[in-house]
């Protein structure tokens, strides 16, 4: 064993502490601002700590019928989009993983799916707005959910493909000999085994939909408006209510943070489109 000097240990502690500070201080600031009295949000020098903490901003937010409405919309859109995208995505991923496509066809398909994710959403958003309007889906939860599915589906297919490919081929073969059609192999053999993958993918799809702003801004006005749009509109409308804005930001971050901690182990896989396994 190498004797590590005290200085080295201190240096490392310092490096760690500064990384934590850079990453976490803004979040600390957000949470603190949400709990501060309004008058302490704009002081010089800034108020880094105060005893006068209160949940007043949260109470006001949660009692606000508009915010309740946006919150329910956010939740409804995210859940609807997640269920749809994971259902369609797992069917497609399973089909791709078990079909003997030629290398070129398979690769072409996957690259195409990848490219659909590369399209800048703004390019699709404006035509989407026209389409949704003519389909009567403008400013509806369903319309926004469909838009979100189009954003998450390529990602979900890629991610789930990796999970399905991890199911040993011999299991698939055993099920074939047991007399299962492909449909039954999907339901009764593969799906139960990729449940962890489905869970992780769902969480990612949920987070993407929950945080999505551009489509929500373009496709909705009030009926189907979601929290990210609400917080963005605060900038214009309630410029001075920093505590309320910070409280809303915190409220939006909390559910995402909880699930992120739950799936921490799988995060890398999600981040890389499934290309890297941890």
């Amino acid at each position: 064993m190498r004797v590590v000097s005290f200085g080295r240990t201190m240096l490392r502690a310092l490096v760690y502490a500064s990384i934590v500070a850079v990453m976490a201080f803004p979040i600390y600031w957000l949470v603190l601002t949400s709990l501060k009295p309004q008058r302490l949000t704009q002081t010089r020098p800034p108020t880094y700590w105060t005893d006068q903490l209160s949940l007043g901003a949260y109470e006001r937010l949660l009692a606000d019928p508009d915010i309740q409405h946006f919150f329910i919309n956010s939740l409804a859109v995210a859940i609807l989009a997640t269920i749809t995208t994971v259902s369609l995505g797992s069917l497609a991923a399973y089909s791709i993983s078990r079909t003997h496509l030629s290398y070129r066809v398979r690769r072409g398909l996957l690259v195409w799916i990848l490219l659909t994710r590369i399209f800048p959403p703004i390019v699709i958003a404006i035509p989407f707005f026209t389409i949704m309007r003519s389909a009567g889906l403008a400013d509806t939860v369903l319309g926004l959910a469909i838009a979100h599915v189009s954003v998450t589906l390529p990602f979900v297919i890629w991610l789930l493909l990796g999970f399905f490919q991890e199911v040993p081929n011999e299991l698939e073969r055993a099920a074939m000999l047991d007399g299962c059609s492909m449909w039954r192999r999907f339901w009764q053999v593969n799906l139960p085994l990729v449940m962890p993958g489905i869970a992780v993918t769902s969480i990612f799809a949920f987070i993407i939909s929950w945080n999505e702003y551009l489509f929500a801004a373009v496709l909705t006005s009030f009926n189907a408006q979601t929290l990210p749009v609400a917080i963005a509109s605060f900038i214009g409308e309630r410029r001075l209510e920093w505590t309320t804005m910070a409280a809303l930001g915190t409220l939006m971050l909390m559910p995402v943070m909880v699930v992120a901690l739950l799936v921490q182990r799988y995060i890398v896989r999600g981040l890389t489109f499934g290309a890297v396994k941890e």
């Binding site: 040993p168 011999e170 073969r173 055993a174 000999l177 007399g179 299962c180």
Partner: peptide, 13 residues
């Protein structure tokens, strides 16, 4: 599935 043949796999599957 149609063949009425059973198989024991190396990995047992």
């Amino acid at each position: 599935a149609e063949r009425d043949i059973a198989m024991v796999f190396q990995s047992y599957a």
